[in-house]
């Protein structure tokens, strides 16, 4: 049950019939794992904390640098040199003191990453490398956690939410690579703040929609943003029957479902 203060604070969003008091309560009760606190994570976390997400778990092993500030808009000049997660946690508290934050200042691997994915309601992949992306996808698929994967470089951005249903694709179906060509990192290729901000903001929007149990009309659809052309394009992504990450669980689950139906 929402308190009077919560009702007043979140009135504009709970006035939306698709959200309502129940939706707001779901947001307050939910835990979101945000992996990567760069440009995507900065934008996403601003909106998630503001919307009243109950707990944010933020993960990054970097420190704030002056060259981050044009696009990693959650940080302030005085925070240069601090760990990103501590600086971000401070900003989250300034936005919404009721949002609980767990700051993890290291690169999560193996069992630790698995535990964090397991405890999350939704996972946001805001990382800057393909290796982490594949690892996060594998765990989200295994543990059936909705995964919202965003990326941006140059004038382009990509975002997709995976619902992890048995017949749905995973990130590896879309990108079956363990390496990507060089010049994929922001420090080599360049990036503009609003471009990465749009993608991070879309990730926050998708998280809010999943957490308020709205039908995921855009599930498993890849949205491409071209800032030069000022255009969005949406493509269907289908399951790769040969995918080394999701083909076996699919077979097992399909067998299970078939048995239930009979």
């Amino acid at each position: 049950m929402l308190s009077d203060a919560q009702f007043i604070r979140y009135q504009r969003q709970l006035a939306l019939p698709e959200i309502g008091e129940n939706g707001q309560q779901s947001l307050l009760d939910s835990r979101v794992l945000v992996i990567g606190c760069g440009g995507l994570g900065s934008a996403a976390v601003l909106y998630l904390a503001s919307a009243g997400i109950g707990q944010l778990v933020i993960v990054d092993d970097d420190r704030v640098e002056s060259s981050n500030l044009p696009r990693q808009v959650i940080y302030r000049e005085r925070q240069i040199g601090q760990t990103k997660v501590d600086a971000m946690a401070e900003q989250i508290k300034a936005i919404n003191v009721n949002c609980r934050v767990r700051a993890i200042s290291k690169r999560l691997i193996g069992t630790q990453l698995e535990l964090e994915v397991l405890n999350a309601d939704v996972v946001l992949d805001c990382t800057d490398n393909i290796h982490s992306r594949q690892q996060i996808n594998q765990l989200c698929r295994k543990l059936i956690k909705p995964l919202i994967s965003g990326s941006a470089i140059g004038w382009k951005g990509q975002v997709i939410a995976f619902d992890q249903l048995p017949l749905s694709p995973c990130y590896h179906c879309l990108v079956p690579d363990s390496e990507l060509p060089a010049a994929q990192r922001c420090n080599e290729f360049g990036i503009l703040g609003p471009v990465v901000g749009i993608i991070g903001t879309l990730q926050a929007l998708q998280a809010i929609m999943i957490l308020t149990r709205q039908t995921m009309r855009n599930a498993n659809q890849l949205t491409l943003f071209d800032a030069h052309l000022f255009q969005f394009q949406t493509l269907n992504v289908v399951k790769d029957p040969q995918c080394e990450v999701c083909r076996y669980p699919q077979t097992d689950q399909m067998k299970g479902e078939a048995t239930c139906q009979i």
Binding site: P176, D177, T234, N236, V237
Partner: peptide, 19 residues
């Protein structure tokens, strides 16, 4: 075209690399 990282969509639907 270098295949690594390359994505093809045919008539608005991504084609898995195995296909």
């Amino acid at each position: 075209i270098a295949i690594t990282g390359c994505v093809f969509a045919l008539n608005q639907s991504v084609v898995p690399r195995s296909a």
